[in-house]
Simulated scan of single mutants.
Amino acid sequence: MANALIDMFRKFGCKSSAREVFDGMAVKDVYSWTTMVNVYAKCGHLESAAQLFEDMPRRNAVSWSCMIAAYSQANQPEEAVRLFKKMIEENVEPINATLVSVLPACAQLGCLDLGRWIYDNYIVSGKVVLTVNLGNAFIDMYAKCGDLDAASRLFAEMGERNVVSWNSMVMAHAVHGQSEQVLHLFEQLKGTGIVPDEITFLGLLSACSHSGLVSEGRRYFKEMKMGYQIEPKAEHYACMIDLLGKSGLLEEALEVAKGMPMEAGEAGWGALLNACRVHGNVEIGECAADKLVKLDPSDSGIYVLMCQIYASKSKWDQVKMLRMLMRDRGVKKNPGCSSIEVDGKCHEFLAADVLHVHSEDIYAALKNIYIHLKLEGYVPLT
């Protein structure tokens, strides 16, 4: 009864009431502890959840899965992966829910080696059954880590698929700019009886944007409303703005941004500003930048893009003015950041970073690349 009460309070988000019942229990089993951990996790109190997890006298696979999921859903993939590895070290066999939770963390960190190890050790070996949800998680992980062939093979081998399965492949090809495969997948999907959803069309529009397929993008945007009664969201409009902008149709893109039933937001105006940078349109760029500054005046990217637009037109006074404005507002350009996995370990780099143990070798290699670029006639944009 006490366990049921804790779970009920969890569903209503009443952590204090749940904790009151938990503290008053004379006897607590592993389910009691796990449910209370889940209460804190669902309410966003990860520190309390982690502390309670560490205090548990006994933990099972469900307990571990609960905490791994909490970190993964809270955008803390490093902690999710760390806890998964600790779980394995303590000889606790993961269950389906564990893998479904840790794979998105692998995808976010680019831990392809770990993802492959999980597949070989638990799916190929038959220790864990490959359900539809787990298959979708693997497809997403492979695609985001760059192994599109593995994602395609797994998708082809799946005996059962749902709309998420199809969306995972559509988004995978879209992210990699493979528009033909995306359009082909969509035609296949329509023949399965599975109804596409808003994510499907987001992938379609994204693919059209990557490849500059204006007529196809317009058709799909219309089809989602007229054929499937799916009301476009801000993300769909942002894709259309990006598609039109990249294709040089800046006035039409501006009209789409202004005519949206909701505020265009950072994604929509940001796409338009970037398109203005590509095509050197100062007037529309200023309009987009003005909207973006009102949304987030501390975003350094807005000022940098406008500086590039002004510089492309030799408007150096405006460039100087913007840089002074950044200084006055205390806006600093965020350093570029990238990461790569080597032998199962993720390495993160910031712009001008010299903290890595192999920094000298890395910069020597970069210098060599720059030399070859200049020999090929490359002139940097300044």
Score class of each variant (00 low, 15 high):
E160V: 13
N162G: 11
G245R: 08
K233Q: 14
S312E: 02
S359Q: 10
M87Y: 11
N274H: 14
S165P: 10
V132G: 02
E348D: 09
V92R: 10
L46W: 01
G159H: 14
D290M: 03
Y310D: 13
A271Q: 05
V37G: 06
E47A: 04
R323V: 05
A137L: 06
E252S: 05
W64M: 08
A61C: 08
M240T: 04
V182E: 08
D361V: 14
E341K: 00
N96S: 11
Q318H: 13
S359P: 05
Y142C: 02
E231Q: 13
S312Q: 04
G126F: 14
G13C: 01
E348Y: 13
L325D: 13
A151F: 06
Y220G: 00
K258N: 12
K294C: 02
C208D: 09
Q308G: 10
H358M: 08
V331K: 10
Q178L: 08
I230L: 15
A70V: 00
Q76I: 03
L154D: 11
N281M: 03
C276V: 08
F349V: 08
G280N: 10
M260D: 04
M25L: 04
I118S: 03
D113L: 00
Y220V: 02
L295R: 04
S209Q: 08
E90S: 12
S206E: 05
W269L: 01
V27C: 02
L148R: 03
C287G: 00
Y303M: 11
R161I: 05
G217L: 12
V128I: 15
L350P: 00
P104F: 00
M87L: 14
A70S: 08
A80S: 08
A4Q: 11
C43I: 03
W117F: 11
L243K: 06
S17A: 11
Y303A: 07
C66A: 12
R19A: 09
L52Y: 12
R153K: 15
N121G: 02
N121C: 09
L148Y: 04
A156Y: 11
M141T: 07
K28M: 00
Y220F: 15
D197G: 13
S215I: 07
G159W: 11
D147H: 11
R82S: 14
A264N: 01
A80L: 01
Y40F: 13
T131R: 14
G191Q: 09
V39K: 00
G13W: 01
N167K: 10
V164Y: 02
W117E: 12
V256D: 03
S16L: 09
V175M: 15
V129L: 07
L154K: 10
V128H: 10
Q73D: 02
S206M: 13
K11C: 04
Y31R: 04
P94F: 06
E255G: 07
E255C: 09
V124I: 15
D140K: 03
L112S: 09
N133K: 14
W316M: 14
D140I: 02
E216I: 03
K320T: 14
K258A: 07
A207Y: 09
I371N: 13
P380E: 14
L249W: 06
